[in-house]
Amino acid sequence: MGFHVNESQFDAWLTEQQKTYDIYAPKCFAGGNTFSDVDCIRYGKVNSISKIVFDQKSEYSFKEVLTPISQTLFFFTEEQCKEADPPKKGAIIFLRSCDLHALKRLDDMYLHNGPADYYYKRIRDNIKIVLIGCKHSFESCFCVSMGTNISENYDMSINVADGVYELNCKDVTWNQFFLDLGASRHLVVPDQVHENKTVVKIPVNLTADVARSSMWEQYNKRCINCGRCNFVCPTCTCFTMQDLYYTENAKVGERRRVWASCMVDGFTDVAGGGSYRKKNGERMRFKVLHKVLDYKQRNGYHMCVGCGRCDDICPEYISFSHCVNKLGDAMKEVTK
């Protein structure tokens, strides 16, 4: 059902939902930027729609709700391992179309690549999605190129218009809630973009042979292997295990998994000093080909969703989309 609601009506719905859900949405963290004290838009809990940032793209994605930056798996005591408790409430996540497509990628990685992941599944089973409509695309977005600009699998969508919030709601109990509130009914279609300023072309003849191209060398020096491009990416899922002890001698502690990045030193290190992909250009090649080649070979569709966050975050102004657009020439170079 479609509705037009005002701020207080929407907040009444949020208040009702907070009984059973934590509400996650992009919000502004003042001075929260990682590398200067400017503001940062990232995901956090909200209790009022006025706190949700709609006019900018979040620097970090929603993925931390499902795969926390640092997640305790279990606690050790001297005698046993005790599983960490799940979040007390389910989660309602506000996200855009590209990110909803990213959720499919997280699902395929955590639920279908090998056995289903217990910790992911127990959060995933209790989430609901509110799709934020995109009236315009942002500078770096290329969702149209990646085919992620349109989404259907949401529980509710929201368009921000002058003074009203336009909702398209698929959840039966939520519909009833808005009807009971006396919200006015309208036909609502989620805002969606049909073209982006940034256009990306993945060559159809792309193969892993492109690894031999000289194009990767330019990144050896330019890239500083900080890993921000992986951390902001809604489809990157890698993690490292970490044991943590509360005090040096105590026999109690916990095992966690924490976000890892294939761009950062140590990702492939094995005992005795061995490591693969020492050069940053090789890491760039590994990351880019994962996003636009080998994930598809494994799963049948591309991993990259075109959100453009990696281009926005890179302190060295390295552009993923430019890099992908160079792959065509690189293929010519290696096949001639």
Partner: peptide, 10 residues
């Protein structure tokens, strides 16, 4: 290898 389960990516 950090997981053995097709998840950690290493």
């Amino acid at each position: 290898m950090c997981c053995g389960l097709g998840k950690c990516g290493h």
